[in-house]
Amino acid sequence: MKYTPREIVDEVNVTPVHPLVNFGYLLGTVAAAGIALYVGLGVAAAQIATRIGPNAEVRVGEVVFEGLFSEADVIQEGSQVKYLRSLAESLHTDALAQRPEPQIYILDEPIPNAMVIPGGHIFVTTGLLADIETENELAFVLAHELGHHENRDTLRSLGRTLVFLSLNSFLAIGGVQLPPMLTGSVSLADLHYSRDQEQKADVYALEIMQERYGHIDYSLDFFERLTEYELDLGVANQLIEWQSTHPLTESRIEHLEAIAVRRGWALEGEPTALPDQ
């Protein structure tokens, strides 16, 4: 047999598609699917959160309480606790009556902080109590946490975390390797959601301050003191805010003062002193 050398000119083993076009198409598809999934899950989580009844929420709250605070120094009695409770009661709105009864505790912890968990358990640290100078500040902090509770933010966060964790588990079982940027961008989007919640709670609290005291002066003092501690990094501030769960203190204050001006709240007034401890 004879050999006839001929050249194969057509590149049959390579699909003639421009790499950038290919990349663009893939990125577009994944981004669209990702956004749809994220929004869908967010809505699903919120739906689950609002469907859980008050009894179930109280039980969930007990489990979280046990899990987080069984080992911690929780103060449930004493004159300080009584004062906090009566202050919190005076801040109740009508809508709050439909939620499980909020319970206030003091946490023996030097770092100033306040938090709320499902079931309406609100914690204020001894560090915070030592730091504040007027009743207005304390009332603002309590009202902010009550705002989270009334809006069911605790349940929403719980729902979202559960849903995202499940999705991660499914992907792990399937052995799917996500490109590194995907997980990063999901976290960023989630942080935006958290900052949104914080701002809503801030406005809620400020409204209660205006109603109770007739002005919002001194309520934000705590945050203004914080800004003196925080470094001013100029433009880098924006980058830091982008990656945190709370809006930056300075922008927080500015935003709230702008809202106060828009709604015609009084910016000046007399402070209310704390009772002697």
Binding site: P19, N22, V30, V176, Q177, L178
Partner: peptide, 20 residues
Amino acid sequence: FKTISAALRNLVGGRVTVYE
């Protein structure tokens, strides 16, 4: 660039042209 394209293709499915 091709590695990232391939990782994305792994999610969407179909012919992995970058490896061809």
